[in-house]
């Protein structure tokens, strides 16, 4: 009997997957954890970030890249490094690749994911052919890194991301007609996509708060009148992005 149990146990041991699905995740710390399915980010996925894309991408990266993990930023030459630092990113473990020739995206990202856990990309429109994007996604899965695709104006990714985060700006506080300064912004973050996020989840955050970080909004502080913008906040319509286009940041 004992033998059989032992045999069954050893068999169970042998057929166990090498790595369990729930081991292949990155822990998410901070307020974003409550919004993501299971409070984690599966390794190897592509995340799309839109709305106030830069702040959200930085906040997400900072809450995932912990310990001694490195982060690479590709194709975002105009990224504000002070904002990156305020969001909690460790600048001493950051690699920046400003511009990548159109045919080289897959090889550059493939080289980077060997070393980094998170890659932020914002490639110019049509810079990445669909075939290269698929190869990159496969490489991501293999290496267990997370690709965050930042929807800067005129920047696109050929494939639909598996998880999508959108931050709709609601209102800035601290600034008036000629007084104060930009102090903090309330946003509504919507998470949708696969991996247990089929039903969109929504929550309000300060992004950035007055220290440049992401912070939850206390219920009593939630904006009601949405001043200084009267009426309902308009979600960022796709048409807004090109309209607001500053000359493509290179």
């Amino acid at each position: 009997m004992v033998d059989r149990v032992a045999a069954a146990l050893s068999l169970a041991d042998r057929v166990r997957p090498v790595s369990l699905a729930n081991e292949r995740v990155l822990d998410v710390s901070g307020p974003l954890a409550s919004l993501l399915p299971g409070g984690v980010l599966p390794r190897g996925i592509t995340v799309g970030v839109s709305g106030v894309a830069t702040s959200l991408a930085l906040a997400l990266t900072a809450s995932v890249a912990k310990g001694d993990s490195w982060v690479a930023v590709v194709g975002m030459g105009a990224l504000g490094l002070a904002a990156a630092e305020e969001s909690g990113l460790a600048l001493e473990r950051l690699l920046l690749v400003d511009s990548v020739p159109a045919g080289q995206w897959a090889s550059v990202v493939a080289a980077l994911v060997e070393a980094v856990q998170v890659v932020l990309v914002a490639p110019p429109v049509a810079a990445v052919p669909a075939g290269q994007a698929r190869r990159m996604a496969a490489r991501m899965r293999e290496q267990g890194a997370v690709l965050i695709q930042v929807a800067w104006p005129e920047r696109t990714w050929p494939q639909r991301p598996e998880l999508s985060l959108q931050a709709r700006p609601l209102a800035w506080s601290g600034i008036g007609a000629g007084h104060g300064h930009l102090r903090a912004r309330q946003v509504e973050i919507v998470v949708s996509g696969r991996h247990g996020a089929d039903r969109p989840r929504t929550a309000r955050f300060w992004l950035p708060d007055e220290h440049g970080r992401l912070a939850p909004v206390e219920p009593e502080a939630a904006v009601t009148s949405l001043s200084p913008f009267p009426g309902r906040p308009r979600p960022l319509s796709p048409s807004r992005a090109p309209a607001m286009l500053p000359p493509a940041p290179s």
Binding site: S55, E86, R183, P208
Partner: peptide, 11 residues
């Protein structure tokens, strides 16, 4: 210096 928070895109 400008007060915090800093801008995310800088040219």
């Amino acid at each position: 210096r400008l007060p915090l928070p800093s801008p995310g895109i800088v040219w």
